[in-house]
Design a protein around this nucleic acid. Structure first.
Lengths: 200, 200
DNA sequence: AAATGCATGTAACGCGTTACATGATTTT
DNA sequence: AAAATCATGTAACGCGTTACATGCATTT
């Protein structure tokens, strides 16, 4: 097996400990339940499932459906669980950050406050949407606490997202105030220039 | 010119609006000033500078130094500034998140609370270090407000990092409490099992 | 004597997204 | 009639890290 550095296969194994699923299901699960801190495209999921099956970490079973196309349902094997536990025992590395909004804000002087104000406003809008989602997740998790023994861990992860979103919103409010002050200042000086020109 | 989706070249142009720099300088600047929200390796910086020079967006000038090897000092050109402004006018896309710590925490039930506790503790330690750095950056920026007209924008970006770090630390404290409770619970039930075994 | 910093660059490799292909059913 | 959903997969391409190469000066 080639040296692998990413966690794309392990996230599939992890989700398959909850219940057997198809590649399509896994894509849905990722998007809806861990999407706020992890993401996989189908271009990753399907080939990785094949590799996992070839390595004996999962097994596939074809399920026929009326009307809809066949499903390949994958289950984790004992050696798959062993692999997952090994991976879990490795210290997670801090990720390298890349925040394009902050990058454009950092160079905001080259564009003027009007441009970046819009970016921050729409970012805040998005974050407010996330806040709603987290509240919903919180309710669902609380009601399913005893159905899933892993739920306490899921809550901790969701709580991280919640606190981050709240911090983002506080930042956005503060930053919009500052940007609007700058805009006002620029308008005043622009009017000043106009008057000076008109008076010429 | 080929279609480019990433911002690796634009970050170089942006930093060169502050002052002319060598590839090495740019690497240092990135690490020390925007490193908390953006990152570039030398394997990206040097080839991208060449491409920028070939496209006429920067110019290179060889500077000789005593003892040390020659430096290629790059300056942004007017068309470089135009390109930067165009890029700044494009709405920044929200990045796809990948947080390995949260991923391992999410699957924490497969490893047990002891394992993930260590991960969160060391994460909190790192974050406390960042907090110190942000306080230092804040001091430096305040003292250099009139030397650099872009400083207000830099402060906004730094403030984002500050608020995020504070949120992370609050989360870590909360989560460590919950994990330690779970550990205690598991110990009690492990002792219970032991006693039952001993009594057999 | 060894390690670190200055300084520039290239090559290999893996990761990940996007686009494409196919085709039926259900909803708008 | 068109779009969205279910469902699986492949291929191309760009991005980005890591390792490697070189070599002098300074610090430990």
């Amino acid at each position: 097996m080639a040296r692998r550095s990413s966690s794309s296969q392990e996230v599939l194994l992890g989700l398959l400990t909850v219940e057997p699923m198809s590649g399509y299901d896994l894509g849905q699960s990722i998007r809806t339940s861990i999407g706020f801190f992890w993401n996989e495209s189908y271009g990753q999921i399907y080939p990785n499932l094949k590799q996992l099956a070839a390595a004996g970490l999962v097994t596939a079973k074809t399920e026929k459906q009326k009307g809809k196309p066949d499903r390949q349902v994958y289950s984790i094997t004992p050696s798959g669980r062993a692999h997952l536990e090994e991976w879990l025992a490795v210290e997670p590395q801090p990720e390298v950050p890349r925040n394009e909004l902050l990058l454009k804000l950092f160079f905001g002087a080259q564009a003027g406050p009007e441009t970046v104000t819009g970016y921050v406003e729409r970012m805040a809008q998005r974050e407010r949407g996330y806040l709603e989602k987290f509240r919903q997740i919180e309710r669902e998790l609380l009601s399913q606490m005893r159905r899933y023994p892993d739920a306490p861990y899921w809550r901790m992860a969701a709580r991280f997202g919640q606190l981050e979103v709240e911090a983002h919103l506080r930042w956005a409010e503060e930053t919009l105030k500052a940007l609007r002050k700058m805009e006002a200042g620029r308008q005043r000086s622009a009017i000043g220039k106009e008057k000076r020109h008109a008076g010429k």
